[in-house]
Measured scan of single mutants.
Amino acid sequence: VTTYKLVINGKTLKGETTTKAVDAETSEKAFKQYANDNGVDGVWTYDDATKTFTVTEMV
């Protein structure tokens, strides 16, 4: 189990959250659901070296 981080650069929501998951794909699903639940829709990137997802909304 690995800890993954999500950085949110939204128009109205900014911040970070973490989750523990067995792999990046599992954490990505959880993070995308979290973003969707909070009305964040944007461009996703992933940095495997830091286990960090970033979602950026276009303004």
Rank of each mutant, 00 (worst) to 15 (best):
K14C: 14
T52R: 02
E57G: 05
D48G: 07
E57T: 07
V22R: 11
A21I: 03
A49R: 11
T45Q: 08
T19V: 15
Q33V: 09
A21W: 04
D47H: 05
V40N: 01
V22F: 12
A30E: 12
T19H: 13
Q33P: 00
D41K: 13
D41S: 13
S27A: 15
A24N: 06
K14V: 10
G42T: 02
F31Q: 01
V55N: 02
T12H: 14
K20G: 06
T45W: 06
A49G: 08
A49E: 12
M58W: 13
T18S: 11
D37N: 09
K20Y: 12
G42A: 02
T56H: 06
K29V: 09
Y46A: 00
N9R: 11
K32H: 08
F31D: 00
T17C: 15
V40A: 03
Y34L: 06
D48L: 06
A30R: 14
D48S: 11
E57A: 07
Y46N: 00
K29S: 07
L6H: 01
T3F: 07
N9E: 09
F53T: 00
A21F: 05
N36D: 11
D23I: 03
F31N: 01
M58L: 13
V59C: 13
Y34T: 02
G15E: 11
V59S: 13
A21Q: 08
T2G: 08
V43S: 07
V43M: 09
V40Y: 06
I8A: 02
W44P: 00
S27T: 05
F53M: 01
D47E: 06
G39Q: 08
N36F: 15
L6N: 02
T2N: 11
D23K: 04
T3W: 11
A21H: 04
T56N: 08
A24D: 05
T45C: 08
Q33W: 05
D23T: 06
G15Q: 12
A21E: 04
A49S: 12
K32I: 07
E25Q: 13
Q33I: 10
N36C: 14
V59Y: 13
V1Q: 12
Y4Q: 02
L13V: 12
E16D: 06
F53P: 00
N9D: 09
T19Y: 15
I8E: 02
N9T: 06
V1E: 13
S27I: 08
A30W: 15
F53C: 03
T2R: 10
A35D: 01
G39C: 08
F53K: 00
A49H: 09
